[in-house]
Design a protein around this nucleic acid. Structure first.
Ligand SMILES: [Mn+2]
Ligand SMILES: [Mn+2]
Ligand SMILES: [Mn+2]
Ligand SMILES: [Mn+2]
Lengths: 156, 156
DNA sequence: CGTGAATCTTAGCCATGGCTTATTTTATGA
DNA sequence: TCATAAAATAAGCCATGGCTAAGATTCACG
């Protein structure tokens, strides 16, 4: 057995900086993604997206939700008139679909490797924003593997 | 085959709000964790942690790094005198060790499921902050499984 | 040993995303 | 219908974490 060299070998400064930059970029999109995904869900389950429901499900005050919605409107993801419910633009709907798809893959991946459902719900809400396309593809492959294992012969 | 009901079933408002709250909490600790981990690495690899190196590896300006270091000092994670290098307090060192351990597990988990090293480096920098202890334990189990598969008989 | 380069700090700017309090508008039901 | 409750907005506060420009300090080398 070799002597336990604890020389931690670092990445290059550039690649490390690039990693942090990617995290910052992800965080910049995070609120937008979470909001449009939630708004889309509310529209489909309740018929419309009211500010009061957005705030409740985000766990924040109505004024806070209102301010973020205003930013989403400024950036072209939603439309809404004063005191009315919130609608997604095409751009918003597209982002919502993409975000939900990624969120679902992360969630189902966690289930596939044995994470309890309630934990998977919690963890996936944060993890979803930091999974690259490459990693996501691997998650999907593993989901499929587990599915094949538990149902080795499906023919319907 | 059943009709494709696209009724997306939502979590309860409370559990969804709790998930978002956990993400916000994680983000609140994120800078602190990344900084103490980096400072610890710099101390071990370069002998000391200079602001200029912290800024370079974080990919931000020196004034930005300086401001965050001041906050870490205010909160008892580091000490430093003007124009001198940065030291971790006991509290800071403890957090650094804990953060690096978690970061490493996430990184090695990604490698274990087939993510390329450079992608794993990037993704793990964001993912690490959103992995619960429960999920982390499962990651460790899977890392061990892969290790056993590739070296089925180790005896040393 | 002194000077120029490197490093660090200071000051002040900005956007995001939280909050509370107060007001306005809309919806409800007696 | 109209009074009250619910929902949304407005105004103003705060911390975080980016930035630039300018000044102070320290370091290194000729
Ligand atoms: Mn999310
Ligand atoms: Mn880390
Ligand atoms: Mn990180
Ligand atoms: Mn995050």
């Amino acid at each position: 057995m070799k002597s336990t060299e604890n020389e931690r070998l670092l990445q290059t400064p550039d690649s490390q900086a690039a990693a942090f930059e990617r995290v910052r970029q992800a965080h910049q999109m995070e609120a937008t993604e979470d909001y449009v995904e939630l708004i889309d869900d509310l529209i489909h389950s309740l018929g419309e997206a009211r500010l009061v429901d957005v705030a409740e499900r985000m766990g924040i005050s109505q004024p806070s939700a209102s301010k973020t919605i205003a930013r989403l409107q400024r950036d072209g993801f939603v439309t809404s008139e004063p005191y009315r419910s919130i609608f997604l633009t095409e751009k918003g709907k597209t982002l919502a679909d993409r975000s939900r798809a990624r969120h679902d893959v992360v969630f189902r991946f966690l289930l596939a490797i044995g994470v309890p459902e309630s934990v998977a719900e919690q963890d996936s809400e944060g993890l979803e924003h930091h999974v690259s396309d490459e990693t996501l593809a691997i998650f999907e492959r593993i989901i499929q593997q587990k599915k094949d294992e538990s149902a080795p012969d499906e023919s319907s």
